[in-house]
Write a protein that binds this DNA or RNA. Sequence first.
DNA 1: TAGATTGTTAATCGATTAACAATC
DNA 2: TAGATTGTTAATCGATTAACAATC
Lengths: 204, 204
Amino acid sequence: MTESVPDIIVSRLPVYLRALQRMSDNGITTTSSQELGEKVGISAAQIRKDLSQFGEFGKQGTGYYIPFLIDKLRAILKVDRIWDVVVIGMGDMGHAIVRYQGFSNRGFQVAMCFDSDPDKIGQQVGNFTIRDVKDLAKDVREAGVKVAMLCVPARFAQEVTDKLVESGVRGILNYAPVSLSVPESVKVQHIDPAIGLQRITYYI
Amino acid sequence: MTESVPDIIVSRLPVYLRALQRMSDNGITTTSSQELGEKVGISAAQIRKDLSQFGEFGKQGTGYYIPFLIDKLRAILKVDRIWDVVVIGMGDMGHAIVRYQGFSNRGFQVAMCFDSDPDKIGQQVGNFTIRDVKDLAKDVREAGVKVAMLCVPARFAQEVTDKLVESGVRGILNYAPVSLSVPESVKVQHIDPAIGLQRITYYI
DNA sequence: TAGATTGTTAATCGATTAACAATC
DNA sequence: TAGATTGTTAATCGATTAACAATC
């Protein structure tokens, strides 16, 4: 087994990838650790060290060839494919996520969405019909979906999480403002705007 | 000047506060570093060390009195008041944010919202009328708003950011999938669901 | 009092930076 | 070749953990 890479390094790779894709979109084909570092606010030494965990992707004297580095990072992060994602909770946030156009070129697509409200079940959101959360376990398992975005109210978040885990989901992007408990084999990332704002006001 | 507190400690305080408020809502009045740590997934020693940066908030033998600790954390994070927030970009995400009910008891309220689309300007979203982004600088400065949530497409994010900074905004919660460059005096936090998802798929 | 838990110190662990030989 | 920039090593810096006296 390969020596495991620190989480903190893994967490920076998507930021590098996003910046590289943007440069690529702008027609730029090579960059240096220096230049990339300035764009993302990270030191050049750190970027070189992070990348060197996974291979030798650059050339002395000329830096990194962007299309090649993008391919490598996509493979490392496993977004050299398209992951189906399930969205649970069709409030305003769930709606916005299902209709969001920005996932597809970054490795993800919404595959199905759920709610528990009888008035919402059967309604159309973007290209999807809202399904009954009662069918969540069955539908997720049958479709083999491994990634979920959780947009339900805080009080329902843990019970839905348990159902997702039981159905084979391996990662959850949690929009509910509450910590979730999951087995070690499941990865959770949190999005809570109020926490983001409180991390700002401390410094004002 | 007080010895400055590491960013990483500050970043954990809102997580503690959220868990404590939840416990308080459930009628619990005291907790220990052990119990709080289990809820948020952080070691008891670290919680005690983090809190001790700001004072002695607990009692040996009995732990922490939750209402007292909540008050202290609110004061430290400066959310013992309500901050006006401006939202720029009234797409699906901006809509969801303006209508979100979860800010008010955590220190924030939307004060105004903007878009550049003539079809949207003048429309109603929740209790707000969408304003013309041309008036952004003037309106923000006059109202003295210090915090912004940025929900515009990536290609407009930097120019709007520059306008916000110029108008006295000191913190930006950035939903656009791009790094922003700001003066040191301005704090930025990023929310990018695709980055969250990519931090997950690495481990699957 | 006995048990529990804090705040803090010292030890450990891990991450970042500086520097430079290698080499394109 | 001369200049630029990588990948990597060693040094520095900072964060986490373990342990325990203090004390409620």
